[in-house]
């Protein structure tokens, strides 16, 4: 079982998100995260889907996605040299006493503090999945109040376009 990041270029049309999420639920595939937004072409959106499965399941997922009429292109980004990012907003307990420690960790992880009250801070952090998990792990002892997290987005390295049509 491997974590795969799949990039799906879709026509920005009625019901396309439900076709894709429905395909996953109907065939019993699992979605770890899904993020979607427009590309530079407003008729086209790009979805980044993170799923977990063995090679055979992921091969079927990709083939089934390609069958959808509104799907323009599917690429298993995990198989190419790529950059992957997620973003989290974390609210952590931080009093006057613990705040310097928290700030230290945030700066080590190259995060940003975006809100401060007497009892808590809100931290914004981007990074790949493992970095995010490591950060949350370190923050745990301070008392995490709330985490809001985006799905992963990914882009290929170099001049090759992830959102290329062909």
């Amino acid at each position: 079982m491997m974590r795969h990041t799949i990039s799906v270029l879709v026509e920005n049309k009625f019901g396309v998100l439900s076709r894709i999420s429905g395909l996953f639920s109907g065939r019993g595939y699992n979605i770890e995260s899904l993020s979607v937004n427009r590309t530079t072409d407003e008729g086209v959106s790009i979805m980044t889907i993170v799923t977990i499965g063995d090679d055979r399941v992921v091969e079927q997922i990709i083939k089934q996605l390609r069958k959808l009429v509104n799907v323009i292109r599917v690429r298993n980004v995990s198989e190419m040299d790529h950059i992957e990012r997620e973003m989290i907003l974390v609210k952590v307990h931080a009093t006057q006493r613990t705040r310097p420690d928290v700030f230290n960790i945030v700066s080590t992880f190259r995060g940003k503090t975006v809100d401060i009250t007497n009892e808590s801070v809100v931290i914004e952090l981007t990074g790949a999945n493992d970095k995010i998990l490591a950060f949350l792990n370190v923050m745990e002892p301070y008392g995490i109040i709330e985490v809001v997290r985006t799905g992963a987005i990914a882009i290929g390295r170099g001049s090759k376009m992830t959102s290329e049509m062909k």
Binding site: F14, G15, S18, R19, G22, L23, G26, L68, V69
Partner: peptide, 15 residues
């Protein structure tokens, strides 16, 4: 369209 989504090759709602 929602009801038939998993059992069609494709579908359209004319708007």
């Amino acid at each position: 369209i929602g009801i038939t989504r998993p059992i069609v090759k494709h579908s359209y709602m004319l708007t």
